[in-house]
Nucleic acid binder design. Structure first.
Length: 113
DNA sequence: AAGTTGACCCCGA
DNA sequence: TTCGGGGCCAACT
C-alpha cells in the first residue's frame, strides 16, 4: 500500500453507514496533513477505483456537499445521504457534528499498513 | 518537463 | 460576523 489515492479510498470505505467524514480529516489521517484538496481529487477519481467508494459520505469541513456536481447525476449525493438517514438541507448536512465520523478517532493507526 | 488545477482549509482585514 | 486571499500536495496536460 503506497499510492496516495489507495489510502484515501480505503479510509473512505471505512466510513460507517449513516455517518459522514471530511476531506481534511481523511487527508490528515493518511499523513498528508494539509492535502485536503487532494482528498477531494481522490474522490473525483474514486469512480475508477477497483472497489466501490462511498464518496457521498465525504463532505467539507462545514458539512456542505461541495462535490454534488461531480456525481453522475445531479442531486444523487444528497439522495444517497438521505437514504442512509442523514438529513440534508440546502446542500448541507443537518446535525453535522453528530453524524461526523473522524477516522483518526475510530481507526487504528495501523489501518493503512 | 514545467505550469496549472482542484469535491479544501486557515487566517487576516 | 462576513469576505477575500494565500497556502497546500499530488495528479493532470
Amino acid at each position: 500500500m503506497d499510492a496516495f489515492f489507495e489510502k484515501v479510498w480505503k479510509v473512505t470505505r471505512a466510513i460507517p453507514y449513516g455517518r459522514v467524514s471530511t476531506y481534511g480529516a481523511i487527508a490528515q489521517f493518511v499523513g498528508s496533513g494539509r492535502a485536503a484538496r487532494m482528498a477531494g481529487y481522490a474522490m473525483n477519481k474514486s469512480f475508477a477505483a477497483p472497489e466501490w467508494v462511498p464518496a457521498h459520505r465525504v463532505v467539507n469541513r462545514q458539512g456542505i456537499l461541495t462535490g454534488q456536481h461531480h456525481f453522475p447525476q445531479s442531486g444523487m449525493m444528497q439522495s444517497l445521504l438521505q437514504q442512509e438517514g442523514i438529513r440534508v438541507e440546502d446542500d448541507t448536512v443537518v446535525d453535522f457534528e453528530k453524524v461526523f465520523w473522524d477516522p483518526g478517532k475510530h481507526l487504528p493507526a495501523s489501518f493503512l499498513d
